[in-house]
């Protein structure tokens, strides 16, 4: 079967592959899994934090990946749907140990939150019925609201900063469609992607 990954890292990865060959296969896989697991388990806060940790580990410490390759990897991870941290770990895993590596790094990255949230889920009802916990969580709802309003203000200001009428119209139209008309979010994303993409291409051509 044709494997798109093959050509991706074939040329670029040669030197690094040679360098890391002196670590035996099994130990390398274990190190991959362990590194992703530890980074995922110990990192709080968004994607970029995890990415800088991955960079520190795989570029500076293990020297399995070069600085330039990291930039390429982040560009791909940013353009793919889903979680940045998971996307980056998929590329790192593949680059170092092929499909097996990619599966191991994904597993290492998703295992800690998966286990923690499963445990929380199992005890959620008892946890929530504790009066103090319930009051704290109720209090936190007010904080979550503040964080969400803050993110909304920042993102909307960023859109308005462009001073492009098309962006403003799209923002208003999408908000009305989602809030008032309850349009399915997936439909909304597809339509906005097509319109936004076309508008962007036209703008770049005229520039």
């Amino acid at each position: 079967m044709y494997n798109p990954w093959e050509m991706v890292f074939h040329k670029k990865g040669m030197n690094e592959r040679k360098r890391s060959e002196n670590i035996s296969g099994k130990r390398k896989l274990w190190t991959l899994f362990k590194s992703c697991f530890i980074i995922s388990a110990c990192t709080f806060g968004g994607g970029m934090v995890i990415i800088s940790m991955l960079q520190k580990k795989f570029v500076e410490e293990l020297k399995w990946i070069s600085e330039d390759e990291v930039m390429d990897m982040v560009a791909i991870a940013e353009s793919s749907p889903g979680v940045m941290a998971v996307n980056t770990s998929i590329i790192i895993g593949y680059k170092i140990a092929g499909v097996k590596g990619a599966l191991l790094t994904v597993l290492g990255t998703i295992l800690p939150p998966m286990v923690i949230l499963s445990v929380i889920s199992l005890f959620y009802v008892q946890f929530r019925s504790n009066r103090i916990v319930a009051l704290v969580l109720k209090g936190m709802q007010a904080g979550v609201a503040a964080v969400m309003i803050n993110v909304t203000i920042t993102m909307c200001l960023n859109v308005l900063k462009d001073k492009r009428l098309s962006s403003m119209l799209m923002l208003v139209a999408a908000a009305v469609a989602a809030v008032v008309f309850k349009v399915d979010i997936i439909v909304l994303i597809i339509i906005s992607g097509i319109i936004g993409g076309l508008l962007n291409i036209r703008k770049e051509e005229s520039a």
Binding site: M155, M170, A174
Partner: peptide, 16 residues
């Protein structure tokens, strides 16, 4: 380009 074009819609969804 598509992702950049999506930005206003993403802001709208965060608002929602």
């Amino acid at each position: 380009g598509v992702l950049k074009g999506l930005r206003p819609a993403v802001a709208a969804m965060v608002l929602a």
